[in-house]
Simulated assay, not measured.
Amino acid sequence: KALQLKSDEHIFKFIKAKFGFGATRDFDASLYLCEEAFGLLPLDTFERLAGTVLLYPYLCTLSVLFILLLVVALSNLSLNGAGGNTEEEDRTFNMRSDVAYNLLHTVFFGLLAFSTMRMKYLWTGHMCAFAAFGVCGKEVWALYLRVLHCNTKTTMRLIRYSVPIIIMAFLYYKFWPRLMEEVSELREFYDPDTVELMEWIR
């Protein structure tokens, strides 16, 4: 009532009932609760994501950047509390605002997909973009190489170009035969009545 909900009120009732904030007698909300697509994310999703080599770079990128975000946030709070005015270039760690924004976005989409499987379509696309950023971008590799004390331009270029090529070669080796098999099984559907109708329309 406080939100003045009208046409989309069943969505609010569905969310309220799903998370245990009260039962609902709304037909649409009850129908959503019965649908499997609006249930929790099944655990075999992670096995399928791991089979496509998407889960591992995503988790590595997510964990590293999330730790970096916490370090940068605590560093900014301590500098503001101490009244310091250290330049961003002088800090040991820093994070671009767009990376932090997308990091929080992918965490939110992940939680949304966990709670409602139907929302997985939002998270999967973001996972692909985030994993590609971790594999092909400089930020994550620079952190790894800085920890290993071998952060040189040559090493950075070698890793940034070799890892994506290895991943693409693995995906080609694993999925190309299956893709060709599925394509070969396709047969053109021939319906004489439809062909006759198309010729008559001409």
Rank of each mutant, 00 (worst) to 15 (best):
A113Y: 00
T106M: 03
A131D: 01
N94P: 10
K138F: 11
E88K: 15
T116Y: 09
F108I: 08
C150A: 05
L79S: 08
K138N: 03
M119L: 05
K138R: 11
D90K: 02
Y101V: 04
T124Q: 11
L112Q: 09
A113P: 03
L145G: 01
G137W: 01
A129N: 02
C136Q: 14
L79R: 11
G125P: 07
E139Y: 12
T116P: 10
L143I: 02
S78W: 06
A129K: 05
E88W: 07
D90A: 05
F133W: 06
R91N: 07
F114D: 14
G137I: 09
H105P: 12
L143M: 04
L103E: 01
W123Q: 09
N85R: 13
L104S: 00
G81Y: 13
K120Y: 15
A142W: 10
T86S: 11
N85G: 12
R91F: 09
F130G: 00
F109H: 10
T86R: 11
D90I: 07
G137K: 07
R118M: 15
Y101A: 04
L77D: 11
L79E: 13
F108Y: 11
A100M: 05
F93W: 15
A132S: 03
L122Y: 14
A100N: 00
T92A: 08
Y121W: 12
T116F: 10
L122W: 08
R118G: 02
E139V: 06
A132P: 00
L122G: 14
F109E: 06
R146P: 02
V99D: 08
G134F: 02
V99Q: 10
V147F: 07
L143A: 02
H126V: 07
F93R: 15
L148C: 10
K138Y: 15
S78V: 13
S78Y: 14
L103S: 00
N94F: 06
V99K: 00
N76G: 11
